[in-house]
Structures are given as structure tokens and as C-alpha cells.
Design a protein around this nucleic acid. Structure first.
Length: 325
RNA sequence: ACCCCAUAAU
């Protein structure tokens, strides 16, 4: 079952729900009982591909059958909550809380975080805050994720002052900001055009990464992507490239997103020769560009008043059979 | 480490 679950999960993350459901069928045909994780993964998949109704349907299916290993658990509800609120149905999402309680499943920190995030993303800050208060009154302690959600909400509103204040408060309570939180701040300052602060926060982010590595916690590609983006935001593509060197030193290979981020950095600087240099570098490392990579290049060339070059890229896309949307 | 929440590319 574990093997089937990972295969299913793979398809779900690619948005290939029909394939995922096929495997699900095969596993049942072969007499292999699905577990809660199987259903959970599928629910997540439907959420990601914008099919909340199918996700709900799966919960019903779980409730109907009486395999003890495939009962809905907290994660099931959390994922469904996420799927529903992501796809616009907040009311359904809220009803789910009552449903889960009736089913004898208690909301946990993730449940509240998911709800608070749903509200915050809709700009309903006060609702998000009341969710957090509710969480505290159920004797659950807000986690780093909770803080991240609130900080993100504040930054989106342009209130970088309160966001920073919250980070400092966490610090006083012995919770130093992690890279995600620092990047959230970076983003906030970037959009508020406070570049002097961007620099400061970047320095901090680098030292956090350093500490992580020293503590034997390995960084992943995403973490480096965050740093790369930080430098691009600080209009320093040179430094962004040096981050790539660092990650190679850790035995990690940059992905499309990272290359595209750096390309966008050079495009912003009007340095199209450097943008192209990165483009060829990624080919040398066998990382395939995607439509966003090309969009970035095209944007860069038009911005640099080189429309004929932009058109060349467009043709290149056709050769590579990437649809130009 | 089979599955859940904040932050990465136009």
C-alpha cells in the first residue's frame, strides 16, 4: 500500500488526477486495501487541481466504508479544509469543523493555521485573528507557521512595521525567525520599496542558513530559491548567482525556478547578455526551460528595446514545442 | 520521512 501511495502522490502533485485515480483503482483490484494516506493524498490532489467537489466526494467514500485503516483523520479534514477554502468555498470549509468534531476528530494547530490562512488570503485579517484566538482558547500554541501566516498577511497589507514587530516578539520568546519568515519580510519590504531593509534581512537570512547547515540540518532547493529571489529583489543578480555556487557546494542542483529567477534578475537590470548566459548554462546542466523561462526572456528583450530578439525567443519556443500563451 | 498549514520564477 505504501508503494501505491507514493505513486499516487506523485501523480497528484503533477496534477494528473486521472492517472492517480487509475492507480487507485488498480490497487483496489489487486486486493490491496487503501489507507487513510491514500485518500488524503487524493484529496490533496483534487484540491491542487481545483476540484473541491471530487475531494468532498472522497471523504464521503471514506466515511461509508468500514476499513479501520482508512478512516478520516485530522489530516484528511485539514486537507479538505485547504482544498475547499483554496477553491473559494469558505462556508463549506467552516462547516467542516463541525463535521470533524462530530466524527470525533479534534482540530489541531494545522487545522487552525489552514483556516487563518484562508481568511488572511482573502484580506479578512480580523477573521484570521479571531481564528488564532480560538486556537489559543483551545489550549493550542500558535506555531511558527501561525506566525508566518500572520506576518505574510501584514506584509500583504503593506504593514511591514507590525510584521517586523511580530518577528521581534517571537525572537524575545526564543523563536528566531526562520528562512521562510525572513523571506516573507523581504517580500514585504521589496514591495514597499524599502531596499535598505532588504539588505539587512538578506544578511540575516544568510546567517540563518549558515546556522542550519552547521547544526546539520540540510537545506533544500526551495530554501536556496528563497535566497536567490531575495538577491534578485535586492537588485543584485551577481550575488544571486553566488548563491547557486553555494548550493552546488552542498551537492544540490538548481532547478528551473532558480535559473528563471536569476534570468529575471538580469532582465530587470537590462543585462540581456547575462540573461542569455544563464540560459545557456541551464542547457549545459540539462535543465529544461519552461514557458515561464521564455516569457521572462521575451519580456526582458522587449523591455531592452530588442523586439527582434524577443521574436527569436518566440521561435525558439516553437522549436521546443512549448506553447506561447 | 507514504499524506496536512506560511515563503521561491512573468
Amino acid at each position: 500500500a505504501v508503494c501505491y501511495n507514493s505513486v499516487i502522490n506523485g501523480f497528484c502533485e503533477q496534477g494528473q488526477m486521472q492517472a492517480a485515480m487509475q492507480i487507485f483503482q488498480v490497487m483496489k483490484d489487486k486486493g490491496c486495501q487503501p489507507t487513510s494516506s491514500t485518500f488524503n493524498t487524493l484529496i490533496k490532489g483534487y484540491g491542487l487541481s481545483g476540484q473541491p467537489l471530487e475531494a468532498k466526494q472522497l471523504l464521503n467514500e471514506m466515511a461509508k466504508q468500514d476499513n479501520k485503516k482508512a478512516k478520516p483523520n485530522v489530516r484528511t479534514y485539514n486537507m479538505l479544509l485547504n482544498a475547499l477554502s483554496r477553491n473559494g468555498n469558505l462556508d463549506d470549509a467552516l462547516n467542516l469543523i463541525a463535521l470533524m468534531r462530530a466524527d470525533g476528530v479534534n482540530p489541531n494547530v494545522v487545522t487552525y493555521n489552514t483556516m487563518a490562512n484562508a481568511f488572511a488570503k482573502k484580506g479578512l485579517t480580523s477573521k484570521a485573528e479571531s481564528v488564532i484566538r480560538e486556537m489559543q482558547s483551545s489550549k493550542l500554541r500558535p506555531s511558527e507557521h501561525t506566525c508566518g501566516i500572520v506576518i505574510n498577511g501584514l506584509c500583504e497589507e503593506g504593514d511591514t512595521e507590525r510584521a517586523l514587530a511580530l518577528v521581534q516578539r517571537m525572537n524575545l520568546q526564543g523563536i528566531p525567525p526562520n528562512l521562510v519568515i525572513l523571506n516573507t519580510l523581504l517580500k514585504g519590504y521589496g514591495r514597499a520599496l524599502q531596499f535598505h531593509r532588504v539588505e539587512q534581512v538578506l544578511e540575516k537570512a544568510k546567517s540563518v542558513l549558515q546556522q542550519m547547515l552547521e547544526a546539520g540540518i540540510s537545506a533544500d532547493v526551495t530554501i536556496y530559491g528563497i535566497l536567490v529571489k531575495g538577491y534578485v529583489r535586492a537588485q543584485d543578480p551577481q550575488k544571486a548567482e553566488s548563491v547557486v555556487q553555494d548550493m552546488r557546494g552542498q551537492g544540490l542542483a538548481p532547478n528551473v525556478i532558480i535559473y528563471t529567477t536569476i534570468i529575471s534578475g538580469w532582465c530587470n537590470a537590462g543585462r540581456m547578455d547575462d540573461a542569455l548566459r544563464i540560459y545557456t548554462e541551464m542547457a549545459e546542466h540539462h535543465v529544461a526551460p519552461n514557458s515561464r523561462t521564455f516569457q521572462t526572456l521575451i519580456w526582458g528583450f522587449s523591455e531592452a528595446k530588442l523586439p527582434n530578439k524577443a521574436e527569436e525567443v518566440l521561435q525558439l519556443m516553437e522549436v521546443q514545442r512549448i506553447s506561447a500563451k
